[in-house]
Amino acid sequence: MRGLAGGALVAALVATGACGVDDDEPLIPAASPTESTAIDPGDSGIPDVDAVMPLPAGAVISTGIPGDLPDEDDSCNLLASLRPDDADPEERVPTIIERGRLIVGLDQGSNLFSFRDPASGELTGFDVDLAREISEDIFGDPDRVEFRSLTSANRIEALEDGQVDLVIRSMSITCERRERVTFSVPYYQAYQRVLAVRGSGIENIEDLEGKRVCLASGTTSAAHLWEELERITVLSVNTWADCLVAIQQNQVDAITTDDAILVGIAAQDPYLEIVGPQLTAEPYGVGIAKSTPDNNTDGLVRQVNSTLARIREDGTWNRMYSTWLSGLGSSPGMPAPIYLPEPAR
């Protein structure tokens, strides 16, 4: 099967017209005839066909630096957010109180963070638990949450269009994203690493030179690859579950993203392992629409930060970590908050 899957990428490269690909010398070689599954037309009357694995829906292949990579801009006050105040939820988030539910955008296929339990069919995971804690503090009820599935690529647009109140989707805080959305203080500190097949010879990021790597569209994971490597093929997909399928079908050699996401992928396949040192730090924050005269979201930011302060102090965060992320080792503790100075009155 690993030999067959190479043909799928060649077909996709031709179909999508990926930049930098020479039709005469494809970057990823096609499967040889001996590796293809074919039906003898003389016996069945069915044309001879190669059996190749299709790429995930919406997958995009890049062999040159994509034009939409997040900027490596560290000029902003990256981790600072509004300090919780003494107001009640009725004062902070009256529109949400009146609606009767909190609308949260997340991923439904990110194992350990937000995924559907195969037994119950219910959404569960670290990010889901966090959403329920915020709902508990607003309504006194953890179940007053409406979850909406988002991809990494459309989560900012969902906030800007008012489709969701919050995005809790392992979303790294960056200066570029801060130009479009507001963040809570960090609720988790992740680090980019690499996931590969055991025994593949891939042990660190340098071993990805000339290899095929999967990542989710709209994430910060690609930027470090292009900084460190000269020749690489990137498969961008909609969800991390798509990356798991791609590596199992030998369509890619590795996956790179935050260690917290990789441990959830590795838990689903014993032949995969996280390799190499920690790369870039990735602080996760709750995404919130920017405040405008027509939609003042400052109260919602303070409400979320109030919940984060509570779960840090009462041990809830550590319990959530033990439940979902203990595969990464002992609890590192929730990141310490940094608050913006309050305006003078």
Rank of each mutant, 00 (worst) to 15 (best):
A87W: 03
E342R: 12
T257V: 06
L300V: 02
R132S: 09
L82E: 03
D129I: 06
D86A: 15
I103S: 09
L9A: 08
L82Y: 06
E313V: 05
A80C: 10
E122A: 11
A266C: 05
Y284L: 10
G276V: 09
S62P: 00
N77C: 03
E282I: 12
R177M: 09
S114A: 14
H224I: 15
P94R: 03
I97T: 04
D314K: 12
L328E: 07
S44T: 15
Q189V: 05
T323S: 08
D258I: 01
S152C: 09
R92V: 05
G6H: 13
N318W: 01
G125T: 01
E227F: 06
D22Y: 01
P84Q: 04
A222K: 00
R148D: 01
R212T: 06
D298S: 11
G17E: 04
R345S: 13
S110G: 08
I46P: 05
T256I: 09
E209N: 00
P118F: 05
W324D: 04
S62A: 14
D24C: 14
T174Q: 02
V185R: 08
I311F: 09
H224S: 15
M53W: 14
Y271Q: 14
L27G: 05
A30C: 11
L328T: 06
I202Y: 00
P283D: 00
V10C: 05
I103T: 13
L123F: 07
L9R: 13
E273M: 08
R144E: 08
R83F: 10
L272F: 01
G218C: 02
S120H: 04
G162C: 11
G67R: 14
I97P: 04
